[in-house]
C-alpha cells in the first residue's frame, strides 16, 4: 500500500502516480480558456468548444456557387475547392477569403471544374466565391435562398484549354 521511496516498488508507484497526475492535469489544463477573453483551441489539449458556441437565427457561411448557362445555381463540392475533408476545406475557404485570396481560388476551382465531366460539373460555365447569410429556420422549412450574399470573385470555366 505504501509509496515508500526507499523501496523499488514505492519508487515505481510514485513515478506512475506522477505520470497520471501530469496527463490528467494536462487534459484539464485548457479549462481556463472557457473564461478567457480570446480563447484559443489547441491540440491535443483542447477545451472542446465545438458544441458550446451560441448559434444565431441568421448564420454566415462561405461557399462556392457554380452557374450553368441558364443561370441555375449549384453548390460546388468541397473536393473541387480544396484538400483535406469538408471541415478543413470550410475553414480554409474562410481564411482564404478573409486574406483576400478569392480571385486566385476562383481560378483554381474553375480549372478543376473544367477537368471534371460528372453531371454536377459538366454544365457549369462560371464559379463564384461567396459569403452568404442564411436564416436557419427558413432553410429547414424549404426557403433555401440566402438572406444576403456577397460575391468575392468569379471565374469562367474554360473547357477549351483543358487537356
Amino acid at each position: 500500500m505504501s509509496l515508500d521511496p526507499s523501496s523499488a516498488v514505492g519508487r515505481d508507484k510514485r513515478l506512475a502516480l506522477c505520470i497520471c497526475l501530469v496527463l490528467i492535469g494536462a487534459v484539464l489544463s485548457p479549462l481556463p480558456q472557457n473564461w478567457s477573453r480570446r480563447p484559443k483551441d489547441n491540440f491535443p489539449l483542447s477545451y472542446y468548444p465545438m458544441f458550446s458556441a451560441k448559434r444565431d437565427p441568421v448564420e454566415t457561411f462561405y461557399y462556392v456557387v457554380g452557374l450553368d448557362a441558364e443561370g441555375q445555381r449549384r453548390y460546388m463540392r468541397h473536393t473541387v475547392i480544396g484538400d483535406g475533408g469538408e471541415n478543413q476545406v470550410r475553414k480554409a475557404l474562410r481564411n482564404i477569403v478573409q486574406a483576400g485570396g478569392s480571385p486566385e481560388l476562383a481560378q483554381t476551382v474553375a480549372q478543376r471544374v473544367a477537368q471534371r465531366s460528372g453531371r454536377r460539373y459538366r454544365d457549369i460555365v462560371s464559379v463564384s466565391i461567396c459569403r452568404g447569410k442564411y436564416n436557419v429556420d427558413d432553410y429547414f422549412h424549404g426557403k433555401k435562398e440566402p438572406v444576403s450574399e456577397r460575391i468575392y470573385a468569379t471565374a469562367e470555366v474554360n473547357r477549351t484549354q483543358t487537356p
Partner: peptide, 13 residues
C-alpha cells in the same frame, strides 16, 4: 448546432 452543421455541408455540395 445540428442545423448549422447540416447547412455547412449542403452549401459545400
Amino acid at each position: 448546432q445540428m442545423a448549422v452543421d447540416a447547412m455547412r455541408k449542403e452549401l459545400l455540395g
